[in-house]
Simulated assay, not measured.
Amino acid sequence: MQRFAVDSTINRWEIPSLGLDQLALRAVPRPTPKAGEILVEVEAVSLNYRDAEVADNGMGNALTFPFTPASDMAGRVVAVGEGVTRFTPGDRVLSAYIPEWIDGVPLSWTQAPTQGGPIPGMLAQYVVTPAEWCVRAPRTLNAIEASTLPVAALTAWMALVELGNLHAGQSVVVQGTGGVSLFAVQLAAAHGARVIVTSGSDEKIARAIALGASHGINRNTTPDWQHAVLELTNGRGADHILEMTGGNNVERSLQAVTQGGRISVIGLLDSDRLSLPILALLASRASIVGIAVGPRRALEDLVRTVDLLGIKPVIDATYAYSQVPQAFAHLRRGAFGKIVVRVSEA
């Protein structure tokens, strides 16, 4: 029989004001679900680059302090409030990043706040959340693996499958080897696409090829990587490019994309600005689309796909709950795949 803790206090990571260096573990009362809410024992929290930025500078969010960072959670329902029928105690769940975006056309940012800023995040032993803000976890993944899906995997899914209409025989350029990029490699390969990875590390390129990529381009030895993409595609260019860098790199993506292809802007590793010639964009007939994760319904679709295809998230490192500062430090250094905090041993 599943046994749940009943302690009156829990431990939660908080910052008293902006600054990741102020992160500290605090004892707080154990929350109780109200009508429409569920109490979740958090088992694992996956970290995203955004989580560190929100804690450091807010990223434009008006945070309420003390603030708990991190948006991605996998856990187990402990109790349900009055009127909840979506889940029952014992169910395994994931948090939805933009919880009020259920489906269809997205709401404005002010109407659709995000988990982990401005909504308080998940780095706690227990969280109370509206039942509508969660989805069922995949059957084929453990909590550590499942916690990586709500932001990184769903972003790749939206860029390639939901919005990109990816299909077999197409070519995809994936920039870097972080969480979104490696999910994109696996999803594209599973759909029968040809995947080209760009990275500054030959070792990481080899690992990405082992995950399903067809080719790799070292952007340090080949800074004008767009020419290599054209060579690999016999001059045609790639159907999809996941743009993770920003700045002048977008112009290279534009040169590497096929006529009428798609550039999904996801990251801003070099710059939070885009720089490209308008005439070249007009001539390419390419679509440049911003990807900001996706709705709850798409996360549910992704979960079913993960179970069906047997996709396993790439975890670079797992940290104990007491090691959250070290986990963020690893995140800042860069990772091959995801960094996950193990909150409980469940």
Rank of each mutant, 00 (worst) to 15 (best):
F87Q: 04
N61P: 00
A62W: 00
F4R: 08
V78P: 12
V229Q: 07
G216C: 12
V185R: 11
D91N: 14
A228W: 13
Q255W: 00
I196E: 08
L276C: 02
T245S: 03
A184L: 13
K204P: 00
T9E: 14
L39I: 12
A238I: 11
F67D: 02
A190M: 05
Q186E: 09
V306A: 10
A188S: 14
F67N: 05
R273N: 06
A184M: 12
R236K: 14
L276W: 01
Y321L: 00
V40I: 15
W101L: 03
S214F: 03
Y49E: 02
A210P: 01
S95K: 11
W133G: 07
Y49F: 13
L18M: 09
G81D: 06
P277F: 00
H167Q: 07
A292W: 12
Y126D: 10
S287H: 08
G116N: 07
T318L: 05
T177K: 03
V78W: 02
V93E: 00
P99W: 06
P113V: 09
N142H: 00
H191P: 09
R285S: 11
V180D: 07
N48T: 10
E37H: 08
V197M: 02
I209P: 00
T198P: 13
R92H: 14
M59Q: 14
R92W: 11
V250Q: 10
G90Y: 07
G337Q: 04
S199V: 13
A5H: 13
S46G: 15
A317V: 05
R86T: 14
S264R: 02
G246Y: 02
F87A: 04
N248Y: 03
F328D: 12
T318H: 09
I38F: 13
I98C: 11
R12D: 03
G58Y: 09
S8C: 03
P33L: 07
S17E: 04
R26I: 04
V289R: 13
M158L: 04
N220D: 08
S171N: 06
A146I: 11
R3H: 14
P106V: 08
S201T: 01
T148W: 08
D270S: 15
I38R: 11
Q2W: 04
D224N: 14
L269Y: 03
I288R: 02
V127W: 05
G261F: 04
P130D: 07
R136H: 13
G200V: 01
D103H: 08
L331F: 11
T318G: 07
N57I: 10
R262T: 00
T9S: 13
L299E: 03
A193Q: 07
W157F: 14
